[in-house]
Every structure is written in C-alpha cells, then in structure tokens.
Computed example of a mutant assay.
Amino acid sequence: MSAPAAARPVAAEGYARIRAGAPVAVRGTAALIWVEGPDAAGFLQGLVSNDVAALAPGGACAALFLDAKGHVQVEMRVHRDAGDAFTIVVPGDRADVLMGLLERYHFSEDLELLGPEPVEIVTLAGGARTPGALTVPGPLPGTVDVVADDPVAAIAAAGAEEVTADALELARVAAGVPRVGVDTGETTLVQEAALEGAAVSFDKGCYLGQETVARLQFRGRANRRLRGLALEGAPPEPGALVTHDGREVGRLTSVAVTPDLGPIGLAIVRREVEEGAVVNVGDASARVVALPFPPR
C-alpha cells in the first residue's frame, strides 16, 4: 500500500507541471525480461492479457499476467523488438515473480527466457520523447517510459525538465491510476481495479485467466470497483477500513495530499456504494467520486 504522498514544495511544483501538460521527466527503475525465439509471440499471446502478437516491431503495449481464476498477478509493458523477440519492462520488485511464472509455463516452445536485469528508466510526460530509445507506455495516460543507459542524456534529448518521483505519485493518485501490488491484492480481478481499458484485449484468443475477464465484461459485472475518495481533514494511513452505514465496503490503498484537490485516496469499494456517497475512512470521512478526480 502506498504511504501518503505529501505536496511538499518541490513535489507540488512538479505535480502542477505534470497536470498542466508541460514536458517533464521523472527518473526511476525497472527490470527487463527478454523472450526470444520462433515461438515467442505465440507463447506470450497465450499468457498475457493484451494482444502482443498484433504488435509491429517497435510497438509496445501494457499487459497483465493473471492466474487461472483471473486474479491480477503482475503488470508489465511488452515491446516487440523483432518478429520473434520481445522485451518486457516490469517493476523491479515483481521481476522475479514474473520470470518464475514464465518459466513455469514454458514447456516445449522454441524460445529463450533471459533476465531479469535491473535498468534505469525515465518517465516522460507532456509530449516529451527520446528518439531512438526503447519506449513503452508510461504509468499515466499520455506518458511513456524509456529505457535509459544514461538518464541525464535521455532527459536532455527529450527537452524535458526533471521533476521528482513524489510529483509523479501525486499525479498518479489524482488521475485515479491503480498500481498493481499497491491498489490490488492477490485476489483482485481486472475489472475491480479498472485495468481492462489499458491492458486487456477483448478481441484476441485465449489466454490465462481470460474466461473470468470476459464473463465479467460481457455477462456480468464485478461486485467491487476502484473509486476515488475525496477526504476531509488529515488523511488516514493506507490500510484504513472504508465503511458505509456501519458496513465494511473497502480499504484505503493509495493516499495523496495535492495542491488543487486536497487530500485524496483510492480504494476498491463495493459497487452498491454510489458516487457521491459519504463514507468513513478510519476516523475520517470522505465522498466517493468518479475517476479521475474532478476539480474541487
């Protein structure tokens, strides 16, 4: 769970630039895994949630690795290097988990699994780009992540101003973008975390966990859904229970104190709690809002 991100002056300034659409850059880390060989495309296509086989060389997409029951396990970005070669960009703390899963499902396919290898990345926002770098979708809509041997040079080539990781975290919460492992648990479903729009193809063939994802999309609905919480007063710590009419309906996962929206949080809340409802979050109160957060 994400500790409250406070709007300290430097973070607040960077957050404002991100929200204004200015060209900015944030340095970070990730890990790379390579899948290479004649069967690489088919292997990944049968495991991850997005249509990686449809990518042209140089293309990339967000994807999820689910378990057989459709629970979200790992988020990733997949880059097609060539017809039979892919680079997966994965959060460093989930790299070994993803590699273990790939190895578990690798049987007789003609391919190699390489990695994971830690790398530095640069998140670019506001239209900034670094020509020639390996580029994948970034953590927020309209952003990209570039793999950078020299982050300083990559930022300079993009013509961007560097801002802090705290600024990006504030912007993430304000945009209502969940982080797998922070806003999700081991049994969270794709639609509960509102991940189906960016990381799922509903046109591709079968993949691990697809039956649950498709059933919720076309024949039912999830009983819980990611929601924004416009908090009143001092924000509670992540993990605080969300209750409505004396009943537990969720748990606070991400918290931020932003210059324009004030204290806000994310929680996967039971669907019967409608937007506009007032809930208790620990000892505080909050109003349930749609995402991304509307202006106050």
Rank of each mutant, 00 (worst) to 15 (best):
A6F: 11
R8Q: 00
P9F: 10
G14I: 04
A16H: 09
R17W: 09
A20E: 15
P23R: 02
G28F: 08
L32A: 13
I33T: 00
W34Q: 15
V35W: 10
E36D: 14
A40L: 07
A41I: 08
G46V: 00
V48A: 13
S49L: 06
D51G: 13
G59H: 07
A60S: 12
F65C: 01
A68D: 15
K69W: 14
G70A: 10
M76L: 15
R77D: 06
G83T: 13
F86M: 01
T87D: 03
V89E: 06
P91C: 03
R94L: 14
A95G: 03
L98R: 04
Y105K: 01
F107W: 07
F107K: 05
E109K: 15
D110Q: 15
L114S: 13
E120S: 11
I121A: 00
V122P: 06
A128R: 01
P131Q: 10
L134T: 13
V146C: 05
D149P: 00
P151E: 02
V152M: 05
A153C: 05
A154L: 09
E161W: 08
V163W: 04
V163A: 00
A167W: 03
A171D: 07
G176Q: 08
T187K: 15
T187R: 15
V190L: 00
V190E: 07
A194R: 11
L195A: 09
A199F: 12
K204P: 06
K204E: 08
G205K: 04
C206S: 12
L208R: 14
Q210G: 14
E211G: 12
V213Y: 08
V213F: 11
A214I: 10
R219Y: 14
G220E: 07
G220I: 09
N223W: 07
L229P: 02
A234R: 04
G239D: 09
A240S: 15
A240L: 00
A240P: 02
H244V: 00
H244E: 06
G246Y: 01
G250M: 01
G250N: 05
T253A: 07
S254W: 09
A256E: 02
T258A: 03
E274V: 12
E274A: 14
G276I: 09
A277T: 11
V278N: 11
S285I: 07
A286K: 06
A286T: 09
V289Q: 00
F293E: 05
P294L: 04
P294C: 01
